[in-house]
Design a binder for these strands. Structure first.
Lengths: 232, 232
DNA sequence: CGGCTAATTGATGAGAGTCAAGCAGCGTGG
DNA sequence: CCACGCTGCTTGACTCTCATCAATTAGCCG
């Protein structure tokens, strides 16, 4: 079904390495594919559209060009844990085994670049540098997951929200302001909290002057030091 | 300081591949090192002894021969999150980057086999099969961490304990009985609960006839199906 | 058998969840 | 350009699960 969607909506096929990196930072996708001449395709998803499901065969590896994606697991009764948010430049959907172990969906309108998993595997089989990079990317995800386990298992609601704000500030702040792509429910599902608890924590930080709002999703951190102090 | 300890206590140096695997299951260590002739050393730690600290340089990769190890992170005030338990046969301490991102300590008297990280790196640089195996091991850890994030973020206390029992049953049950190497506090720190909550959940499962005790750490699962049902 | 550590159990309380109401921001259409 | 309506966010009142504090009890090793 992903394949079907791809066939009907794919808009842009290019040789990776001939296009400019989407972002000024080291382009992780290019680092893998640049010198092996893999074909990458651009593709778009609308807000709330599923990119792949949990346990679905991992046919493609993705990189966010614009927009934002969440990776998550569900329990049978609908409880959801978001494991990571993927922002422009981030690679997601990379698996060592045959299937995706989290589902992924666009949280706002999103464009991704994608390559076939099989072609990466093939490149890795002959090029040790590619193999090393794939390992390093998985290790980076593991590092994030380990940090997040500490947050989910042992931090208070306020500490979780403080950690979240500092992470998003680091990853998407422009000119000291961040435009959050995700709603309060998504933040709650990422932090193991309810959306109400997230909202209350943000309100409290606002009341203390630690952050400012210009719209619920436009946040300015006014005192990173105090926020770091709240983050245990 | 690890080096110092190694110098004083190392007892056994061997060519990996010439010794019998510690366990009947596929030997992960051997899979990496068997055909490249790496030198492995055996080494022992006493209960509660630290094997390496968080952010310490990752000089060695380890495999549990006998005993059990926990990998954990600490907050400044002492709150602890155990990310994984390592049981006989398990590899731990494998890093793609330069440092350990969790600390590790023996939870009972433990013997490990270890190889220099640098020699693995070297083997991976020339042997794509080794590189692939290292990636797969890190991916396996990531899979466990992703499952554990769901547990920590979204499961109830009883669901967490049920998940834990089923995991340990799968990993260390012999003749339908499991001998837990870890205390209630360790279980709590793994599940994001207090030791009292773990104890109460176990007592409740006992009262319902779902499990039997012969000593606090000797547990028999009498009804895996009901336990699976309690695990969401 | 004695003494220590680990585990159980009970009483109480705090932090986050649930349920519910109202508000604000934003996109749409008149 | 402004009004309307939808969705998402905030806030309040109350509940409940799990943490905390405390006292026994059980298990284990010398």
């Amino acid at each position: 079904m992903l394949t079907q969607t791809l066939n009907t909506q794919a808009i842009n096929t290019q040789i990776v390495g001939k296009i400019a990196p989407a972002h000024p930072v080291a382009d992780q996708f290019g680092a893998i594919t640049g010198h092996v001449g893999l074909v990458a395709t651009e593709f778009s998803y609308r807000k709330d559209e599923e990119i792949y499901g949990e346990d679905e065969p991992a046919e493609y590896v993705y990189q966010v060009v614009t927009g934002a994606v969440s990776s998550y697991k569900l329990l049978s009764d609908g409880r959801r844990q978001i494991g990571a948010f993927h922002l422009p430049g981030d690679v997601f959907g990379l698996e060592s085994g045959p299937a995706h172990r989290l589902a992924a969906e666009a949280i706002i309108d999103t464009t991704v670049r994608l390559v076939k998993r099989a072609s990466l595997e093939k490149a890795a089989a002959t090029d040790v540098q590619v193999a090393r990079k794939l390992w390093a990317m998985t290790a980076g995800e593991l590092r994030h997951a380990e940090d997040h386990m500490l947050l989910l298992g042992r931090k208070t609601a306020m500490e979780r929200v403080a950690t979240f704000l500092l992470e998003m500030d680091r990853r998407l702040a422009v000119a000291g302001m961040m435009a959050l792509p995700m709603c309060r429910r998504d933040i709650g599902d990422y932090l193991g909290l309810t959306l109400e608890t997230v909202s209350r924590a943000l309100s409290q930080l606002h009341a203390q002057g630690i952050l400012g709002f210009s719209g619920a999703r436009q946040i300015v951190l006014r005192n990173r030091q105090r926020l770091q102090h709240l983050d245990a």
